[in-house]
Design a protein around this nucleic acid. Structure first.
Lengths: 244, 244
DNA sequence: CTCTTAAAGTGTCATAAGGACACTTATCGA
DNA sequence: TCGATAAGTGTCCTTATGACACTTTAAGAG
């Protein structure tokens, strides 16, 4: 022994006070997308409190240490409070941190990105005024809080990639849905038109969607076959990207 | 006016004290991989302090609010202190948080994953005893701290995917390098052998590597051509995955 | 010096998947 | 009943890949 006291981990934890260390403000924000009337939409909440009160921003908030066991729990809790439901698809997008992004000090937000059918939360969102869908193509007309515009861009880019090699975007549609609608969602995400034939071939090959056997009129023209998501949808990856 | 005082953002910030809120312990950890003697290696540091003193864990630490402007700054600073250099490739891997992952309380780590040539930090790492490369295939023989085994698995999976559709793994090699070595790195990441011909075709098509014009003897047999990374390497993506 | 072996690099063919595009099917509405 | 419209299909061409045999180059044994 060299005279110093050998501290056990138990002793250390008993004397540990997190407030002795510089504090990083940590929050969880979510970028929730949907598809409605030929447009991609993102869910925004008008901030009631400082900082940035009045501005539209991503739904998010602090971790509730008693109620949330994981980061995804926080994302789910916040989204459910704004939409009434938990989205059928959510994944972690990334973390955005820095000294300057929040006036309160050094801050980090763990961002999630998610998809939901427009109809799944229609009534809940219509009942309040502080939560709204915004056309993703018109966000530049809005002055968003914090760095949330960059986070939304990252979410779009994530789903743009997913649209190239997966059928995950199907989570933005209410079941049952037509391949025409799903293809349109992919086209909006990717930013180019896709060949009908190629798209249908990929869907059939994947087994990630299941034909319901029903059809739906699509205005004028031949009615379209309807599909629902198979349980394997989230895991399926094409080995080759779609698009020229 | 309804009698309440309308607080300005300036007033709010003047009265804001982060210690009034529940504190989340926030750190940054990095999974740094390299390639040496036909093996994938990951850099681990033996913990000097509680909690988990004595265990091997990922290099990481607290955000230094005065020195770090971004999360990547923190990752760079910590890695540079352990290896002497900043790795040529680093990307954010994801955040791991929860109530139970650290005995000190609710915690979040923002994880980065990076690649570096073995030779780039050879002398620095040889000079200390608390920092070592470990064979990724033999991590099960080690009892790692916290949830760091899961984080390393996530890093491996990230680079496994990159190896399928990019040449980013080239950052694990000292320039100039042979395609035989690079293909071996990809094979270790993907977990299967790859066709020489296909691999060379992809490299040529990509333009992501540049032939130096030199050759190097490869033991017995025809000497191999040598390559270096082009500036476009990090951005290049194959539209189709390699491997059957 | 030559022969063997080993490893890098190449030529070529068959296959699989996508884009293009014309054609067919099915519904609406005038 | 016919025209317009949109979903769905058949077919050809192109492209990237895996397979595999072949060539090139060097080290080392005899």
């Amino acid at each position: 022994m060299d005279g110093t006291v050998t501290e056990t981990e138990r002793d250390y934890l008993a004397g540990y006070d997190p407030r002795e260390f510089p504090i990083v403000l940590t929050t969880v924000d979510s970028v929730l997308f949907t598809y409605h009337e030929d447009r991609l939409k993102v869910l925004l909440v008008q901030r009631a409190n400082h900082p940035q009160a009045g501005r539209w921003a991503l739904p998010g908030g602090y971790i509730d240490q008693d109620r949330d066991a994981t980061l995804e729990d926080t994302a789910h809790r916040v989204l459910a409070s704004k939409t009434g439901v938990v989205p059928p698809y959510i994944e972690q997008l990334g973390s955005f941190g820095g000294a300057g992004r929040d006036p309160r000090g050094w801050s980090v937000t763990i961002a999630y990105t998610a998809l939901i059918p427009f109809q799944a939360c229609l009534t809940h969102i219509e009942s309040v005024t502080d939560t709204q869908w915004f056309d993703v193509a018109r966000l530049n007309e809005l002055e968003l809080g914090f760095d949330h515009e960059a986070i939304i861009d990252a979410g779009r880019e994530r789903f743009r990639q997913k649209a190239l090699y997966s059928l995950v975007p199907a989570h933005a549609l209410q079941e049952p849905f037509s391949l025409a609608d799903l293809r349109r969602v992919h086209e909006l995400l990717i930013g180019m038109t896709l060949s009908r034939k190629s798209f249908i071939r990929r869907v059939e090959e994947s087994g990630a969607l299941i034909e319901t056997g029903d059809e739906a009129p699509s205005g004028r023209g031949r009615p379209s076959k309807l599909y629902r998501r198979s349980p394997h949808l989230d895991d399926y990856r094409f080995i080759r990207n779609i698009g020229k």
